[in-house]
C-alpha cells in the first residue's frame, strides 16, 4: 500500500458541495465556481499527504469521497456504494479537448 499511488475519487451524486474537503487538502482539491470539488492530477495524492487524504474521506459530511490504492480499480474501497467511473467516451472535439 505504501508503494502504490493513492487516488481520491468523488461520488458526484452524493456530493452536496459542502466544501470542507478543499479546505483540508487544497493541494489536491479545489472548488469550482459552483462549490463542487475539482481533483488535481486525476485525484492522485502526493506521497506525504496520505493522512490528510484519509481525513478528508472520513470528514466529508456526505461520504462522497473515497480513496483507492490502485488507479485502475473500480473504486469499491472505502464506500460500499461506489464511486463514478471516469467517463470513457469518444474524444470531445474542440471545446473540451
Amino acid at each position: 500500500m505504501s508503494q502504490q499511488t493513492m487516488r481520491l475519487r468523488v461520488n458526484p451524486i452524493a456530493c452536496s458541495g459542502h466544501g470542507s474537503c478543499a479546505e483540508l487538502l487544497p493541494e489536491v482539491i479545489t472548488l469550482d465556481e459552483w462549490g463542487y470539488p475539482l481533483l488535481a492530477g486525476d485525484g492522485a495524492v502526493p506521497v506525504g499527504l496520505a493522512r490528510e487524504a484519509r481525513r478528508v474521506v472520513t470528514d466529508c459530511p456526505a461520504l462522497a469521497l473515497a480513496l483507492t490504492a490502485d488507479p485502475a480499480s473500480s473504486a469499491h474501497a472505502a464506500d460500499s456504494e461506489g464511486i463514478q467511473k471516469k467517463h470513457r467516451g469518444p474524444v470531445e472535439p474542440g471545446l473540451a479537448r
Partner: peptide, 19 residues
C-alpha cells in the same frame, strides 16, 4: 468544467453536442 464530473453521461453528451 462539466465534462466527466456528473454521475452519468448526460453532461458529457451535452458538451459533445454543443461543442
Amino acid at each position: 468544467l462539466v465534462t466527466g464530473r456528473g454521475g452519468c453521461h448526460h453532461p458529457d453528451g451535452t458538451i459533445r453536442f454543443v461543442a
